[in-house]
Design a protein around this nucleic acid. Sequence first.
RNA 1: GGAGACGUGGCCGAGAGGCUGAAGGCGCUCCCCUGCUAAGGGAGUAUAGGGUUUGUAGCUCUAUCGAGAGUUCGAAUCUCUCCGUCUCCGCCA
Length: 428
Amino acid sequence: MLDPKKLRSELHTIAEQLQTRGYTLDVEAIQTLETQRKALQVNAQNLQAERNTRSKGIGKAKAQGEDIAPLLAEVDALKVQLEEAEKASEAVQATLESIFSGIPNIPDKSTPQGKGEEENVEIKRWGEPKSYDFEVKDHVDLTEARGWYDNDAAVKIASSRFSVLKGPLARLQRALTQFMLDTHLEHGYQEVYVPYIVNQDSLRGTGQLPKFEEDLYKLAKHEEHDTNDRDLYLIPTAEVPITNLVRDDILDQADLPLKMVGHTPCFRSEAGSYGRDTRGLIRQHQFEKVEMVQIVHPEKSNEALEELTGHAEAILQKLGLPYRVMALCTGDIGFSAAKTFDLEVWLPGQSAYREISSCSNFQDFQARRLKTRYRSGQEKPQLVHTVNGSGLAVGRTLVAVLENYQNADGTVTIPNVLRPYMGGGEII
RNA sequence: GGAGACGUGGCCGAGAGGCUGAAGGCGCUCCCCUGCUAAGGGAGUAUAGGGUUUGUAGCUCUAUCGAGAGUUCGAAUCUCUCCGUCUCCGCCA
């Protein structure tokens, strides 16, 4: 969420900035509501103040044994008035709140301008896509014939867009996960294990709610449970539980930056992507991901983003996978992000670079919702900045390793760094 | 799952309808005192929102005692719902 104070005082500037990402802010509607809010809120607070002083008066009068009946009668009328005023004030504030929470983050100055995906800027390329003297297969062809990838089984036990991995393939995925986590420990992250199911407050904190509920898997409630029971959701990314570790916290400035890494499955309904990437492991309802999160001082967030992106790149480099770094343009960055780098890995099976990591600086957009602040000494608490990124999407990395390291005979060479995790095996 | 107890500021802990944004203690900050150390004395020490304002300064109002709703002129205090913690029993990786 954006700063409401800033929204009020710099409404037109913000509207312009948001326009760069293709979001049109209804300036007039907000101004009208703001005027109302101000009047109603002041009115309600004045009545509250009145009520408070009078009630205290009654208390004193009573303590001195005076007759309080006339005082009570006086306050009686006030009560109705106050209730109406509070209701009106709360209603406008709720309306504004719901508008505000639907407004995306303002792009960072360094985010390139552009309308959509096509205008993202390639800022770096690492590694050369290998040329093969045989016809390359994609990851499905490489693994299905050997009985390691079983889409039919996944459909049978769940539905489409799930997968069953077996044997060396399953192990390779685990090896990748371990390798990534171990590497990020060397990068100075603290490993965390977190719930895969989260409540609404957590999803609001990181910005998935209220706007993107359809992307999430929501858990059905038990009928016998009360309707007030909290709604729970499967996590779409470890970003949610990990970042929410610091929700409502006031951190000591000396403890910043906080660097955490965790591995979780991720669950996405993939609503609205019915025809896309239906083959293989690229787009699944359930996939493994290693996620890095940094909680940083506001002046250091862009620096932290560079560093964290570098940590994600390190994985690709150690695996020897060719990739490029894209700076997403204003029209393509996510709702909560101010700046995003995507890492795209080369997939020989598709002859294309495909997203394998997304690293973003959210500045104080998430922190405001999370109420995550830091304090130095006796100073007032300030909002932190949050930065996170995949390091990496394990399923897609698995695809990349299979396709880039395939041999003419259909076997796959294991990258050096993974061999310790594969019992020393060099080839599968 | 059953029975009971409980949830107050950074921490401990009082408070049981009004004078309580909250006693007291610990911790922390600043000042004083003091050969050093230890001890002692004094002051301060929640967060958020609004109004005023060029201002994150000052002044002022409001809200917050796990969360929400209710009763009341007035709620930390009474009622209800939820969340959580602890103890005993049951079950379980």
